[in-house]
Design a binder for these strands. Structure first.
Length: 271
DNA sequence: ATGGGCACCTGGCTGC
DNA sequence: TGCAGCCAGGTGCCCA
């Protein structure tokens, strides 16, 4: 999926089309997502106006008059804004039909995405409450990352992919941020120095912010709300570049598997 | 409390 | 052409 930049790109893409609109119909064609879509959801959201399109970590939040829709894109999900009469294709799992005549359509081949609803404060939802601060907010600062890395035996790459400690960083941007911070992914988090932690905060912030500017990264499935791919793939330094020369020093980029996920790094630039 | 591994899915690509 | 095997933007849960 969709890491933070892809979710944020989706949020920005749908926002002007959904905010202020009323939900005419929620049509669920395939409820078997990461969590089974509650059968009562269509009746609950029908007729409610969308007040805001927000994001928390990799969750999209549609604030309604009486509650909040929580959407997650999983690994292969995408949301698109389409004319109401667009024929459904394979893996189109639900449609949010708006009073504008447009449809917000969710497609997700692997079905790791989710569609949920909460009547209360979304921040208190069990899936959102334990999440770390937003990486582009002031709360995610040098002191924070320094503190949460102390005493941790996990590798720094796995640590920055742990949503209870750092949010929004997935497999692509974890490798990219560590390259920019010049830290090897397999280093134990507790061996990261205070200076390096500060560098890593800056690297995470800049890689995410720049990827948002580029509309995210498209490897295969991901498209923004308008159907366009993201172009950050052209700016990747290490991800998916095993054997190819480092863009900084020409040393071949290495690949190894860490916690069942592919990791890429430059053995020369990263220590 | 922490860390490791598995599970949930489909589809695209590689190599025999 | 067919098929097995591997790989893929995530993350909650179970167990040691």
């Amino acid at each position: 999926m969709p890491e933070l930049p892809e979710v944020e790109t989706t949020r920005r893409g749908i926002e002007p089309h959904v905010v202020g609109r009323r939900i005419r119909v929620l049509a669920v064609h395939e409820p078997r997502l990461r969590w089974r879509v509650d059968a009562s959801l269509p009746a609950v959201v029908a007729g409610q106006k969308v007040l805001a399109a927000g994001r928390r970590a990799k969750y999209l939040l549609l604030a309604l008059e009486r509650g909040t829709i929580l959407l997650h894109l999983g690994m292969s999900g995408s949301l698109r804004v389409l004319p109401g009469e667009t024929p459904r294709g394979k893996h189109d799992h639900f449609d949010l039909v708006l009073d504008s005549g447009q449809t917000l359509r969710f497609n997700d081949p692997r079905r790791f995405g989710s569609l949920m609803y909460t009547a209360g404060d979304p921040a208190a939802h069990p899936l959102l409450a334990p999440l770390a601060p937003e990486p582009l907010s002031a709360a995610f600062d040098d002191a924070y990352l320094w503190r949460v890395t102390r005493g941790r035996r996990v590798t720094v790459k796995q640590l920055i992919m742990n949503a209870r400690l750092v949010v929004g960083v997935g497999n692509i941007y974890a490798s990219e941020a560590l390259f920019r911070a010049r830290i090897r992914p397999e280093r134990a988090a507790r061996r990261v120095t205070e200076r390096e932690a500060a560098r890593l905060v800056r690297a995470i912030r800049s890689v995410l912010a720049n990827a948002v500017k580029a509309g995210g990264t498209t490897l295969r499935d991901y498209v923004g709300a308008d159907g366009a791919p993201g172009y950050f793939g052209q700016k990747l330094y290490v991800y998916g570049r095993a054997g190819q020369p480092c863009r900084a020093c020409r040393t071949p980029i290495r690949r190894r598997v860490q916690g069942q996920r592919a990791t890429y790094w430059c053995p020369q630039c990263q220590k």
